[in-house]
Design a protein around this nucleic acid. Structure first.
Length: 217
DNA sequence: CGGCTGATCGTG
DNA sequence: ACGATCAGCCGA
């Protein structure tokens, strides 16, 4: 039931991949141990025709180079000088489509996740380390692309990492989203008409707990 | 709860 | 200069 996702899975357009990644488990070997989290929110960036994309109009620089790889590589960049954001490349070589990971719920390595969290994000969100079965609390802690990366120990050193290799990959543990919501993407007001495109995908939550079948355990 | 703001730096 | 952000602080 639990299988590692191979290259073919990632070689689809960003819109398809963004939905397909919901419910998949991102696994990473970190200095503090193995960490794993189920993806609950994504955004599709559809490439050269998408004004919100770093690769709009075919822009190709040292930073965006990774986006032009075939599906299944990590595109990690720094934003606002503070936070890392992780994308998964999609489609074929030369087509810079990508999927931004915006939220996840940890299922393995809770101690490592807790220790890795940005200090500031712990304080207000949750006073102390939540119980492992408190899905809502952990979902909050990993809600947002910056927090997600912090918690899973993802940094710019992981840029261009092959997600079909060892130590950093996706797994299918059989979690199927009960319901997927589509909304416009966040933080792209400058993107003209593209700012209203419903390319953000969320697993619907009840009481702060993203709904899967079977439920997260 | 909604809106504003400072932090902080790689990238173009 | 300017963000595919976050958290703290403001006022209501």
């Amino acid at each position: 039931m639990t299988e590692k996702l191979g290259r073919d899975f990632f070689r689809q357009d960003a819109l398809t991949l963004a939905r397909a990644l919901l419910g998949k488990t991102l696994v990473k070997r970190t200095e503090r141990g193995i960490v794993a989290a189920v993806v609950t929110e994504t955004e599709a960036y559809t490439g050269v025709g998408d004004r919100a994309s770093h690769a709009f109009g075919g822009r190709r620089t040292a930073r965006t180079e990774t986006m032009y790889r075939e599906g299944g590589y990590a595109y990690v960049y720094l934003i606002y000088g503070l936070y890392s954001c992780m994308n998964v490349t999609a489609a074929e070589t030369g087509n810079p489509e990508a999927v931004l990971l915006r939220a996840a719920v940890p299922v393995e390595g809770f101690g490592a996740v807790w220790d890795s969290l940005c200090r500031t994000s712990r304080k207000k969100t949750v006073p102390g380390r939540p119980a492992e079965d408190d899905r809502a609390a952990w979902a909050k802690l990993l809600g947002g692309p910056g927090r997600l990366c912090c918690a899973l120990g993802i940094t710019r050193a992981d840029d261009a990492a092959d997600l079909t290799g060892e130590g950093f990959f996706f797994r299918d543990d059989g979690y199927v989203p009960r319901r997927i919501l589509c909304r416009p993407r966040i933080g792209i007001d400058y993107a003209g008409e593209a700012k209203d495109w419903p390319y953000r995908f969320t697993v619907e939550s009840a009481d702060g707990v993203p709904g899967f079948d079977p439920p997260l355990m």
